[in-house]
Amino acid sequence: MKLNIRLAFLVALSTLAVGVSPASSNPVRSSQSQVNEITVISNNIELNRAKNLARQAAENANGGLGEYRAEASMHGASAEAPFVDNGDGTWTFTFQGHKPGASVYTVETVVTVSQNGRITVDYNGRIRNSSNVR
C-alpha cells in the first residue's frame, strides 16, 4: 500500500514539474515596466509600515491592546486602509476603534505618518460627525 501512495505522489510531482516552464512564465518586460513595478512594491511596503505605525500609535494612545482594538481595515491590506496620501511624503489615516469584545466603535483616531517614520496623532477622541471632520 505504501508503494502505491509513493508511486502516485511521484507521478503527481513529475506531472507538475513538467507542466511548469520558467521560460513561458516570465514575459519580456521593458526596463520602464520593471522600474514602475519596483516603485509600486516599494510604495506598498512604505504604506504598510505607515499603516502599522498609525495603528500602533492609536493602540498606545488608548491604553494598549487590553483596552483598544482598531477597526479591521487597519489590520488588512494597506491599500484598503482609510488613508489619504498627502503628496508630501506623509499619509494620514482616519479610523475608528473600540474596546475588545465590543461591537460598537467609540473612538476616532487621526494619525499622520511620514516616510521616515515620524508619527503625529492629530486627533484621538469621540467619533466626530463626518461633516465636522477636516
Rank of each mutant, 00 (worst) to 15 (best):
L13W: 06
V28L: 06
A50R: 05
L65A: 13
G63S: 12
T90Q: 00
G66E: 09
V35C: 07
A72E: 08
S73T: 10
L16K: 02
K51H: 02
S33E: 14
R29L: 07
A81L: 03
M74E: 03
E59H: 05
A17L: 02
N60V: 14
L16Q: 04
G76D: 06
L65S: 13
V40Q: 12
G66Q: 09
A70T: 02
G87K: 01
T15V: 12
Y68C: 04
Q34S: 10
Q34L: 14
L47T: 02
F93Y: 04
I41W: 12
E59G: 00
V84G: 01
S42T: 06
P27S: 06
S25C: 15
T39F: 01
Q34C: 07
P82L: 00
I38W: 14
I45W: 04
N48A: 11
V11K: 07
P82C: 06
F83S: 05
A23Q: 13
F9Y: 10
R69G: 02
A12N: 11
A58H: 00
Q56H: 11
S24T: 14
Q96Y: 11
Q32W: 11
N86A: 00
N48E: 10
V40G: 04
G89V: 03
L10E: 09
E37L: 14
S14V: 11
P27Q: 01
L10I: 13
A81H: 03
Y68K: 03
D88F: 00
A61C: 02
S31G: 00
R55Q: 09
V11E: 09
N60H: 14
G87H: 00
A12E: 11
L10H: 13
A57V: 04
G63C: 11
S14P: 04
S78R: 05
N60E: 15
L53P: 07
S78C: 04
P22F: 07
A79R: 11
G19C: 13
N52I: 07
N44Y: 05
V35E: 12
E80I: 13
L10V: 11
Q96E: 15
Q96R: 14
A58S: 02
T39P: 03
L53A: 07
F83W: 09
S31T: 09
A8T: 08
G64E: 14
L16S: 08
N26W: 15
A79S: 13
N36S: 09
V40T: 13
A8L: 12
F93P: 01
Q56Y: 11
V11Y: 05
S73Q: 09
A8V: 09
T15E: 08
L10F: 15
N43L: 04
F93W: 00
A61Q: 04
K51T: 00
S24Y: 12
A70S: 14
D88I: 05
N86I: 03
N48C: 06
H75W: 08
G19L: 15
Y68D: 06
E59L: 14
I38E: 14
E37G: 12
R6M: 15
P22D: 06
S33L: 07
G19A: 15
S14A: 13
V28D: 08
F93V: 02
S42D: 08
A57M: 01
T39H: 06
A54R: 05
S42V: 00
R29T: 05
T39I: 10
G87T: 01
S25G: 15
G87A: 04
R49L: 08
D85C: 09
S33Q: 13
T90W: 05
V11G: 03
F83C: 07
